[in-house]
């Protein structure tokens, strides 16, 4: 019995360490994404960008964090106090939870033992991600409503109706991936894409649909309706200040990081790369490859933001409901036909 308890304890400690490391990396990547975004924006607009804090402005995210924490924490007079405080917390919590099912690599060999580089390998990983994506709306809606401000409410309703519209097409695009891999577990899907057998080859249309929906789910330009300053001031976080505002902004960068990780895993082979065995360097090769892909996609997200203008709201709804959903259904039918003709 005591040996059994010891074993349980060891597993729990191992998972706890992995979770803490993952959270640290997630927060670090999110923080430095803000720096990267400003540098890329500066490059595209022929400016220099942040260069005062530290060499090349590398300490800028830390300075921003200190600024956020030391600002006045304002609360509107008529706000629903508890919900107003709860909303940013709920938003960032949901954003952080999604990383649990992503396989970051195969196994890490350390001190003679091996550690699975995935917090939990539940066999419904994709549905877990969809569940948390669909819960992301609540932070925005509660925050916008509890602020007791018309502009916040309009921003919240715009953002959340956009998110639930694009969730549908996202789910339909995911079904095609599930059909060709025959599993809902992200680890199985990653394992099947060894070498160059990436899903993007079989699912080019599905990838485009999924990528567009990911942009919309993260509220990134050209879908950043929520923060359409000329019409809605600051959107759902108009009334927020200090670190509560920081939580909302930060959670969006976390969402971007996680969706890039999901895109890489589903369509671009995850931790696989032709010629590079994910077990090299004691298992570190997998995470290195995966993070290279993730950083590439984060760059693409930023590239799109500084290239494309914002959609009008009705155009956004037309694209979601009248183009992406029928395309996703067509993609499903094509995938089914392909499996019928050629097998898996």
């Amino acid at each position: 019995m005591s040996i059994f308890l010891l074993f349980v304890f060891a597993v729990v400690v191992e998972k706890m360490i992995l979770i803490v490391v993952l959270f640290t990396i997630t927060l670090g990547v999110a923080a430095y994404s803000t720096y990267g975004e400003r540098k890329i924006a500066a490059f595209m607009q022929d400016r220099i960008g942040p260069d005062r804090a530290g060499p090349w402005g590398l300490l800028q995210p830390i300075a921003d964090g200190v600024k956020m924490f030391t600002k006045e924490d304002f609360m509107p007079n008529q706000a629903e106090k508890w919900l107003y405080i709860l909303a940013p917390g709920a938003f960032i919590f949901v954003a952080c939870m999604t990383s649990a099912v992503i396989p970051w690599g195969t196994q890490l060999t350390l001190f003679g033992g091996s550690i699975d580089l995935q917090v939990t390998n539940i066999n419904i990983g994709i549905l877990y991600i969809m569940g948390f994506v669909s819960l992301g709306v609540y932070g925005i809606m509660i925050g916008g409503w509890a602020s007791n401000n018309k502009y916040s409410l309009y921003g919240a309703i715009r953002a959340s109706s956009q998110m639930i519209s694009y969730e549908l097409a996202m789910g339909l695009a995911l079904i095609s991936v599930v059909m060709i891999s025959g599993s809902l577990s992200l680890r199985d899907i990653a394992e099947q894409q060894t070498g160059f057998g990436w899903n993007i080859i079989y699912q080019p249309l599905g990838f485009i649909i999924f990528f567009t929906c990911a942009l919309a789910e993260c509220n990134r330009a050209p879908f950043d309706m929520a923060e359409c300053e000329t019409e809605l001031i600051g959107g759902y976080h108009t009334e927020y200040s200090s670190m509560k505002l920081g939580f909302f902004l930060f959670a969006e960068y976390i969402n971007m990081f996680i969706s890039c990780a999901v895109i890489s895993t589903l369509y671009f082979g995850g931790y696989n790369f032709p010629g590079l065995d994910p077990a090299w360097l004691g298992g570190l090769m997998g995470p290195i490859v995966l993070f290279a892909k993730i950083f590439f996609f984060i760059f693409v997200f930023m590239w799109i933001r500084w290239t494309l203008p914002r959609f009008r709201y009705d155009q956004l709804m037309h694209l979601g409901w009248k183009s992406l959903i029928p395309l996703a259904i067509l993609n499903m039918v094509l995938t089914g036909g392909g499996i019928l003709l050629f097998g898996n």
Binding site: I122, N123, I124, L127, Y128, M130, G131, S134, L135, V137, Y138, M141, W145, L153, A156, I157, S160, S161, I164, E167
Partner: peptide, 25 residues
């Protein structure tokens, strides 16, 4: 597990969002 996740996606993620929408509007 499957029922649990589908329960959350359908009820908490979709139906209750629409309830909140109507109440807020």
């Amino acid at each position: 597990q499957f029922l649990a996740v589908v329960h959350i996606i359908v009820y908490a993620g979709a139906i209750m969002v629409l309830f909140l929408f109507v109440l807020m509007l």
